[in-house]
C-alpha cells in the first residue's frame, strides 16, 4: 500500500506542485493550507510523513513541527521542511524545531520523491 504523505503549504500553486510530484511517484497525498487544516487532517487520517512549509500565516511551520514533536501520537512522525527560507540558518532552526530533513524551494522534482522515500525509510 502506498504511503500517505501530508503536504502543508499556504501557497496553492506550491501545494498543487508538491501534490502532483508525490502522486506521480505513487504516494497518496493529503494537503493542508495551514497548521489548523494540518491538525484536522492528521486526526482524520494519520499520514506516514509530513512535508511542511515554514512560513505560513497564523501558526508557522516551526511551531507546527514543535507541536507534532511534543504530541505522543506524532512524536515519531517523519517531518520534512520544504521552504523558501534557503539559508543554513533556516535549516538549523527547522531541525531544532524537530524537522528530520530540509529542502529549499525551488524543489528538484526529479529527486524529491527519492528523498521522501529515504525519509520514510530512515524513520521507520
Amino acid at each position: 500500500m502506498a504511503a500517505r504523505v501530508l503536504v502543508v503549504d499556504d501557497n496553492a500553486a506550491n501545494l498543487k506542485l508538491l501534490g502532483a510530484v508525490l502522486r506521480l511517484a505513487g504516494y497518496e497525498v493529503a494537503t493542508a493550507r495551514d497548521a489548523v487544516e494540518a491538525e484536522v487532517e492528521l486526526r482524520r487520517r494519520p499520514p506516514q510523513a509530513v512535508l511542511l512549509d515554514l512560513q505560513m500565516p497564523g501558526i508557522d511551520g516551526f511551531t507546527l513541527a514543535r507541536r507534532l514533536r511534543s504530541e505522543p501520537s506524532t512524536r515519531g512522525l517523519p517531518l520534512m521542511a520544504v521552504t523558501a527560507y534557503a539559508g543554513e540558518h533556516d535549516e538549523r532552526r527547522a531541525r531544532e524545531a524537530g524537522c528530520d530533513d530540509f529542502v529549499a524551494k525551488p524543489i528538484d522534482t526529479r529527486t524529491l520523491p527519492a528523498r521522501v522515500a529515504r525519509l520514510l525509510e530512515a524513520c521507520r
Binding site: A13, L17, A20, V21, P106, I107, D108, T109
Partner: peptide, 14 residues
Amino acid sequence: LRTPLNSIVGFAEL
C-alpha cells in the same frame, strides 16, 4: 521570489 519560482521550475520540470 522563491515561492513562485518553485511553481515555475517544478511544473516546467514535470
